[in-house]
């Protein structure tokens, strides 16, 4: 039902590096869980709408105003920083 290649691909999509052993375990676990979920196929869902909200379904608006958080504390959380800016690796790589 679900192949090891599928698991590999999902790992890439979810941005999680998986070891070979873990791919095997996940394949087994997902087979199990998806096997259980199969029972939903018994349900007659014809004409039933999708539930999209837990309670109430209306738009909530508020004024588009900036809110201040504690910027010092926020900045202290940066894993890497340079001149007060958050430092990350480049999105595009140079050849």
């Amino acid at each position: 039902m679900i192949s090891k290649d599928d698991i590999k691909k999902l790992g890439e999509l979810a941005r999680i590096h998986l070891t070979e052993k873990e791919e095997g375990n996940l394949q087994k676990d997902l087979e199990n869980i998806l096997g259980y979920i199969e029972k939903l196929k018994e349900v007659d869902i014809s004409g039933v709408p999708e539930m999209t909200h837990a309670v109430g379904e209306k738009n909530i608006f508020r004024k588009d105003e900036a809110r201040t958080r504690d910027f010092v504390l926020l900045k202290e959380q940066f894993p890497e920083e340079e001149k007060g800016f958050l430092k990350v690796k480049g999105v595009f790589e140079r050849e």
Partner: peptide
């Protein structure tokens, strides 16, 4: 097959 079906079943439960 999965998400939409589950949300419909959720509607039925509610």
């Amino acid at each position: 097959a999965y998400y939409a079906r589950a949300q419909k079943v959720r509607y039925m439960i509610r």
